[in-house]
């Protein structure tokens, strides 16, 4: 605990006010997010629940955030922190593209993001996944956990719901999946997390990043997540 700051005031009536506990009402992305590589690129997936303590603040949240044309991220932790970080990185990447006439690579985007998380680790509560497709580097997945370290992985999951599905994801994972299989893999994994985690729920959103650009899919509880809401993905 931070020295001298967490204690608050002990009043004459003996009631102790814990300032940290008051802060805990902050909007939290108790979440299930994942990003996986496959044969032609990457897929990002997320549930849609945002909570304030036990209350669902938003039941159709979009946790998949575009930070560049073909680089997206999934956010977990404090909604405010992760949105701020994503916005800053997006600004960097936009400027990079204008300045150099070339889009940044997924690794460079993840580096900028990790640097922000690392330099401000004492103030942020942000766990992010960065996934992107780049003509030269193909599909890549990077994870930036709480301390701001940078990890490159074939697939990554994060958020409170991810703990319930880790073994499932390990078991079902195969390298170089076909697109259809990979979509199924992500969707089914998030579905199990929603089943088990109180802080995850709502719809399942996917984003597929390949040479074709980005395609978004939406699965809802209306038909038990069995079919996408559209036969064709939503092209962006």
């Amino acid at each position: 605990m931070a020295y001298g700051r967490s204690a608050g005031v002990l009043n004459a009536d003996g009631i102790h006010v814990d300032m940290q506990a008051l802060k805990a009402g902050e909007v939290d992305l108790g979440t299930t997010i994942m990003a996986v590589t496959f044969k032609d690129g990457v897929i990002l997936g997320a549930d849609s629940r945002t909570t304030t303590g036990p209350v669902i603040a938003n039941r159709v949240t979009d946790k998949l955030t575009m930070i560049d044309d073909n680089i997206w991220c999934c956010r977990s932790g404090s909604a405010a922190d992760t949105q701020a970080v994503a916005d800053i990185v997006k600004r960097h990447l936009d400027q990079h593209a204008v300045h150099h006439g070339e889009r940044a690579t997924t690794g460079q985007a993840a580096s900028i993001l990790a640097e922000i998380c690392y330099a401000n680790k004492d103030m942020l509560s942000a766990g992010l996944l960065v996934a992107g497709w780049h003509p030269r580097y193909g599909g890549e997945v990077y994870q930036v956990p709480l301390g701001g370290s940078l990890h490159k992985e074939p697939w990554a999951i994060s958020g409170s719901g991810s703990t319930y599905i880790r073994a499932l994801c390990y078991r079902n994972w195969r390298e170089n999946m076909e697109e259809k299989e990979a979509i199924q893999y992500v969707k089914e994994s998030v579905r199990e997390a929603i089943r088990n985690d109180g802080s995850s729920g709502g719809v399942i959103r996917l984003a597929v990043l390949t040479a074709r650009g980005v395609e978004r899919w939406l699965f809802t509880p209306d038909d038990d997540y069995s079919k996408p809401t559209d036969d064709k993905p939503q092209k962006m």
Binding site: A2, Y3, G4, R5, G8, V9, N11, A12, D13, I15, V17, M19, K121, D122, G147
Partner: peptide, 20 residues
């Protein structure tokens, strides 16, 4: 609860602490 203790807002009244 009584008045808020403003020393909480004053960063100079405590040692600097970054450490996580």
């Amino acid at each position: 609860y009584g008045a808020y203790d403003h020393s909480f807002m004053n960063t100079n009244s405590h040692p600097n602490q970054h450490t996580q």
